[in-house]
């Protein structure tokens, strides 16, 4: 068993699946020779050749659009968009074609492709390098949206995404690419898409989060639990389709709910989760379901970014408010 960080787990998963399935091809900007700006595809071109791992032209629309064609014609493309903030030229292809081909052809043509994108803030970067845009994909019927928060999950989810019959948007929390290491089995395993993980069970409050916020939320929970509470933490792992059952059952048990996310508050993923809870667990609630999210602003450049991301303290304050309601 190898001990890997999140980015290494992604490289390992790509390597594993390329070795197993000849139809898997990997490309994107700087993905081939250099191995990607984050080195997610490091060594793959040397191992599998330029036909299977290559530098795309600098055009996100081409990366996604050509991937759609390959997927229809029997390949399993795993493409990389360098940063999710640069996906917009490709968004047209994602929304108007990748998500719709199955429906449009009544199941004749399908798009089993994975679109990987580093996403999220807290890395003190230039403009368009820090956004959390998961709802822009989750809102589109026909797309699945996955976000791993650990190296172990990253491998299992990526293998599941590549083998999935539909297009999967695979968002990678770049803030924790190299934050910690974990044992990642070298053998085959998948983590089902659409299944959340109860990271820690508890009885007083349900907290749902994903990606880089899992660690921050864990720290906040540790602080608040010292004050005598017992909190359940759920890592959503798949943003769409949401694992309603796990979330709703947990809230029925605890009666209280907080969602923590990096995307801006208005029309964010928290709104969807709270809506589900209102519909399915309303009579169990003992406090208003609450979201902890950045305000409705553009992610500031590094010197102002601390105003954007909710920090451990911010999360802890919200947890206490809901617990003491």
């Amino acid at each position: 068993m190898a001990v890997l960080n999140l980015i290494e787990a992604i490289t390992h998963a790509l390597d594993y699946e390329m070795g197993k399935d000849e139809s898997v091809v990997v490309y994107g900007e700087d993905v081939g020779f250099e191995g990607g700006v984050f080195r997610a595809t490091k060594g793959l071109q040397q191992k599998y050749g330029e036909k299977r791992v290559f530098d795309s032209i600098l055009a996100e629309s081409s990366i996604v659009g050509s991937g759609i064609g390959m997927a229809i014609n029997g390949l399993r493309p795993v493409v990389e968009i360098q940063f999710s903030g640069f996906m917009f030229p490709g968004y047209n292809q994602i929304v108007t074609h990748a998500a719709r081909m199955r429906n449009r052809s009544r199941g004749l043509y399908t798009v089993p492709m994975v679109i990987r994108m580093p996403y999220g803030g807290g890395v003190r970067a230039l403009e368009h390098h820090s956004e959390s845009l998961e709802v822009l994909f989750a809102h589109i019927p026909g797309l699945k949206v996955v976000i791993p928060s650990t190296p172990y999950d990253a491998k299992g989810l990526l293998l599941a995404a590549i083998r999935d019959p539909d297009p999967v948007i695979f968002l990678e929390p770049k803030r924790i690419y190299r934050a910690f290491k974990q044992e990642v089995p070298e053998e085959d395993y998948t983590i089902p898409i659409g299944k959340a993980k109860v990271v820690k069970s508890g009885s007083d409050l349900t907290v749902v989060t994903w990606g880089a916020m899992v660690r921050d939320t864990q720290k906040a929970i540790e602080i608040v639990e010292k004050e005598g509470f017992n909190i359940e933490l759920i890592d959503l792992r798949t943003i769409s389709p949401i694992d309603q059952e796990t979330v709703v059952e947990s809230v029925k048990k605890t009666g209280r709910f907080v969602v923590v996310h990096e995307a801006v508050s208005s029309y964010g993923p928290g709104a969807e989760l709270i809506s589900i809870i209102n519909e399915k667990a309303f009579l169990h609630l003992e406090a208003p379901p609450t979201r902890v999210a950045p305000p409705d602003i553009i992610v500031p450049l590094p010197k102002g970014e601390h105003h954007y991301l909710p920090d451990v303290n911010h999360i802890a304050v919200a947890l206490r408010q809901v617990l003491k309601f």
């Binding site: 508050s265 208005s266 305000p295 409705d296 602003i297 553009i298 500031p300 010197k303 102002g304 105003h307 954007y308 303290n313 911010h314 304050v317």
Partner: peptide
């Protein structure tokens, strides 16, 4: 240093009512 106001000031010509609420909440926090 970049003030909290500064990250809200230029999203729209005028802050929305939700933004105002978010601003005061963050400021208090």
């Amino acid at each position: 240093p970049v003030a909290l106001e500064a990250v809200f000031d230029y999203i729209y010509a005028d802050k929305t009512s939700i933004q105002k609420e978010q601003y005061y909440k963050l400021k208090a926090l």
